[in-house]
Nucleic acid binder design. Structure first.
Lengths: 183, 183
DNA sequence: CCGTAGCGAGAACGACCGTTCTCGCGCAAC
DNA sequence: GTTGCGCGAGAACGGTCGTTCTCGCTACGG
């Protein structure tokens, strides 16, 4: 097993565990056990837990936005692409291991204590905002609806996590539909 | 110092510390130091940390909703009362120690690990939803806008926390205004 | 075939955490 | 005045965590 594979297995295991149980509730030994990578090598690849956390967030950010974009871009251009965001949220919320937005969770747990985590969360949210702004602009929608559309999506993530239901995605979509129609 | 005062001082100190730094980042000894209540009495009043956490959430729930209601009910009845919710959010977000919704934070940190926390968070969010639904009904608004209005508020809380700006409250208010107008 | 460099498994270490225990003191009841 | 109970201060305990170290083993270069 070379460096690259060890890194991938560590990120796979750590991301899943951190997301499912929270960062502080997962020990490095559990990451070792789930990944099959020895502790020694773990610390060669990620010199500390907080760097592992950071790497997990970075990778998740890329994958999450790529999945969203893939779904959106399969829809006809224009207004429908904005609404497709909420359809994708519904699919995400329905996944069996869904436990809310990993970035919001990480911010609540570590944002006050680990500035690198706070930075990663801010970057992720800014990227999502910018992406949605691009979709709205392409659809010819007014700029001032972008922020409420983002808040609907953000609120849907936390509401879906807390309630355990994917329904907030539908409700957010309805709200987004009205906001776009009214403009 | 009697039992009641010890309890109040413990809740004051614990709530502030947990909110500012996260629950797991605060040790019982720091609660003792900040409250001036001895460790022995702390454990007489709250037999475990998770019961202390639970009591903090319960008390915060009551106070938070009372503050919101006090602000809302000082406004003229009807539509303005719904929008007053977002004005109050702005005031809240502007407080110097604002760090997001304590319930969302607690859910992200402990929801997967402590079912009592998850229950308290769900109860708080359900109460907020019901309160907003009552305001919308009193304003003659249609029931189907309630859920998006809740999502706007929820999204504003997390966006304000992560961005460090109170602006999401304004944006949520604009979105809510449009939703109410379009119905 | 020998030396050595790197590896995995797991023990070890130091710090901290939640919780309980000890001990000395003040005070209230008889 | 004595006795005993409740208190605060802080030590102690058992466990866990992040991180490092030890120690055989393996595999490869000369």
């Amino acid at each position: 097993m070379d460096h690259a594979e060890a890194e991938a297995r560590l990120l796979d295991a750590a991301e899943e565990l951190f997301y499912a149980r929270g960062v502080q509730a997962v020990g490095m030994d559990q990451v070792r056990e789930a990944s099959g990578v020895s502790l020694k090598r773990l610390y060669q690849v990620f010199p500390s837990k907080s760097e592992l956390v950071r790497a997990c967030l970075d990778r998740r950010d890329g994958r999450w936005r790529a999945r969203l974009a893939a779904h959106v871009e399969a829809c006809p251009a224009g207004r429908e692409r904005v609404l497709a965001v909420y359809d994708w949220l519904y699919e995400w919320f329905t996944e069996p291991d869904f436990r809310g937005c990993a970035f919001i969770n990480a911010y609540g747990e570590l944002g006050a204590v680990d500035p690198a985590v706070a930075d990663a969360v801010r970057a992720h949210k800014r990227a999502f905002h910018d992406y949605l702004a691009g979709l709205v602009a392409a659809a010819g929608g007014p700029e001032h609806v972008v922020a409420p559309l983002v808040l609907l999506a953000e609120g849907a993530m936390t509401a879906a996590a807390i309630s355990g239901s994917p329904e907030p995605a539908r409700q957010a979509r309805l709200g987004a539909d009205q906001l776009l129609a009214a403009s």
